[in-house]
Nucleic acid binder design. Structure first.
Lengths: 335, 335
DNA sequence: CTGAAAGCGCTTACAG
DNA sequence: CTGAAAGCGCTTACAG
């Protein structure tokens, strides 16, 4: 039914000009109350909605923001998106979602699109491949085009834009120290993201807390089989008393391998992971984890972006925000 | 830097008209090869990109599709989104994401927005509250506005639009029969989504396979505490030999409660869940599950929508597609 | 082969 | 208080 009614059609029906209708709908003081009322009544009757595309063309805004997500199957990013959507909603912005699947080429393709002015700003978590190859030209290009950019989560990059991440280094430094105060000395770390900025920082945090370099036990690989073998070594041969896991894969792998090798958590092995609470609490035993507050990261990211888009912070140097994580104790630490 | 260059500016630099530039960029046969070349060269030099908003205004298309997701933290929906994004990308469509958080009010707000013409079409999985209250007017309204709609996953609703879901009923009917052929008779079902269409169908499938109504053992509640108590009864008092779990929550809960009550999986209890493989395979023991192919659901949904948008199926009656699920055996069935 | 004109649906400075 | 005109950046039928 109803092909959407336009301002022009409304004007004709009312026998007034298009400008009058437009102004009336915006409650302009120029228009007589009587006219305003007539216009609004008919507009309501016909369910008039201004065509957003036309409005955008006038204002040279798109009313949308873009979000680049490396991997949506990762609950962390899914929850960040949730925060982004909620906050954008309040600001009246539409969220256009792009998934890079950790691919540099795809990320380049996306940023290339975005330079054509589809969006008023972009939130980006850099893909794994991009970080590995240190190929950032497409990101600088976006900045050159004067498109506001905010980096979230994976912020370890020298781009002059606002950033919001978590306290990766502290999270594991604190966790390590906590274990030490409980008399645990032989602590290892498992990671499949040691080549990512956030991964490096988590390792650094763990390392900072060590009393001696010989206490450094690491299982690191982005290849599942290799990580499995290295983790086995840590658990079975080195017999670490506790292990920190820097990401979902390593956490689940450690959990599973303890089971396979009949290592009792938390009696023989304490575990602290980076994992979502909705999974952690159902595990057997439940796994203590670092809560990252992804929803807040998403909301804050949008706030930073909106400030830039609306030029509230024009010319101001880039802002760096850090969300404080929280260690949530479940059964796997046994405290 | 570079405030984006426009057609008009390009035309001035070249001393030709705007129309000529536009045509040249579209390889119009009306324009001389020489001019085409000159235009394209300068366009490339200035990295000219047509303003998508202006193009959209002319074509009265927005070049975007909307996706309403009930709960993005659910990996199933996250993976559907991934499929949607990939397929939309190919079609040159932008994906605007809306998250209803299972709320009717939010869903109404979203559909209300969408009637103003932000998008060329919408993919919807109906929120839980919407289904519970059977409040569908806002969806019919969308259809009245001639906005193409495709329902995905939660398709149990008499709306005259294309739909794509999974074979919910068969999935659990087959699973139940399979357990029976292995000599297991006392089979229960746990569900936190019995009030959703998909949940009802899964229960129906299970029920279809039962030889006798007295074999019907169910733990159903959307309240965690109640579900926990009912599940405990099934496992500890009724001592079912196998249990089907219709969703993530019930699967994880059963897994956890078996542990708490020292019930051995799969020796004392076989388990088949609805859960994502990336979690299932790491559990101890790993849990057999119904693979739903969320990525394909997303891709197919976009395909149906694009066909409607481009009017390739104009006037044709709604299409109903069903994706066949697959039972993936892990340790929890012990076969 | 090129360009002037109209138009997509809106907003707003300007004139009356 | 109301309206004609210009313009946002593009496309395209029409005239030359």
């Amino acid at each position: 039914m109803k092909n959407k009614i336009t301002l022009k059609e409304l004007a004709k029906l009312l026998n007034v000009s298009v400008s009058t209708v437009s102004k009336a709908l915006h409650d302009s003081p120029e228009i007589s109350p009587k006219t305003v009322e007539r216009v609004k009544e008919l507009a309501k009757l016909h369910k008039y909605r201004p065509n957003p595309v036309a409005v955008n063309l006038k204002s040279s805004k798109s009313g949308t923001i873009g979000v680049i997500i490396p991997n949506i199957a990762n609950t962390f990013f899914a929850n960040v998106l949730s925060g982004i959507e909620a906050r954008a909603q309040k600001a009246g912005l539409q969220v256009i979602t792009y998934i890079s699947n950790e691919s540099l080429a795809r990320e380049q393709q996306i940023t290339e699109m975005l330079t054509s002015g589809f969006v008023d700003g972009v939130l980006i978590a850099i893909s794994e491949e991009t970080q590995r190859k240190k190929e950032y030209e497409h990101l600088f290009n976006l900045v050159d085009y004067d498109i506001p950019v905010v980096l979230y989560d994976r912020v370890n990059l020298d781009l002059p834009v606002d950033k919001i991440g978590i306290d990766d280094e502290h999270s594991f430094e604190d966790a390590t120290r906590l274990l030490q105060t409980r008399g645990i000395e032989k602590i290892g770390i498992a990671t499949s993201i040691h080549h990512l900025g956030v991964g490096k920082l988590r390792i650094t945090g763990y390392r900072n807390a060590l009393k001696d370099e010989k206490d450094f036990y690491i299982a690191n690989s982005s290849k599942p089989d290799t990580l499995r073998e290295k983790t086995r070594k840590l658990l079975v041969e080195d017999k670490v008393e506790a292990i920190l896991c820097s990401d979902f894969e390593s956490t689940m792998l450690v959990y599973r391998m303890a089971y396979e090798n009949k290592i009792k958590i938390p009696d023989d092995l304490k575990v602290i992971g980076f994992i979502n609470g909705d999974v952690a609490r159902y595990l057997t035993p439940s796994i203590s984890y670092v809560e990252q507050f992804p929803g807040e990261i998403g909301e804050e990211a949008v706030e930073l972006l909106v400030d830039r888009i609306e030029n509230r912070v024009a010319g101001k140097p880039p802002i760096n925000k850090t969300i404080r994580t929280k260690l949530i104790h479940m059964e796997s630490t046994g405290f």
